[in-house]
Amino acid sequence: MPPKLKTLLIWVVAIFLVYAIVTSPDRAADLVKALWDVITGAFASFGRFFSSLTA
């Protein structure tokens, strides 16, 4: 991917995120909480997997 296109896409995504947060902060907070729950659940699953390997 050309560097200028990559930079443009990053700016477009950043502007969209700011727009989404400003227009609907409650929904944006719910999405961040849901994403955080997925990430912590994945790490907990990895932990259980590796601990079951040693048992």
Rank of each mutant, 00 (worst) to 15 (best):
L31P: 02
T7K: 03
L9F: 08
L17E: 09
A44E: 05
F43M: 12
L35A: 12
T54H: 13
G47K: 09
T54E: 15
Y19I: 13
G47N: 08
S24V: 02
D30L: 15
F50I: 15
S52D: 13
S24P: 01
F43A: 10
L5N: 01
A29S: 11
L53R: 11
P25N: 02
V32I: 14
A29M: 12
G41Y: 05
S51I: 10
W36A: 13
W11C: 01
F43W: 10
P25A: 03
I10P: 00
W11V: 00
D26F: 06
V32Q: 01
R27F: 15
K4A: 02
D37R: 10
F49N: 05
F16E: 07
I10W: 02
A20M: 11
V18S: 04
A29W: 10
L35G: 10
T54P: 05
T7L: 02
Y19L: 14
Y19S: 09
L8M: 07
Y19E: 07
L9M: 12
S45H: 06
K4N: 01
I10L: 07
I10C: 03
S45V: 09
T54A: 15
D37V: 07
P25G: 03
L17G: 08
L53C: 11
A29H: 05
D37L: 07
V32P: 00
Y19P: 02
T54F: 14
G41D: 10
I21M: 08
S45T: 12
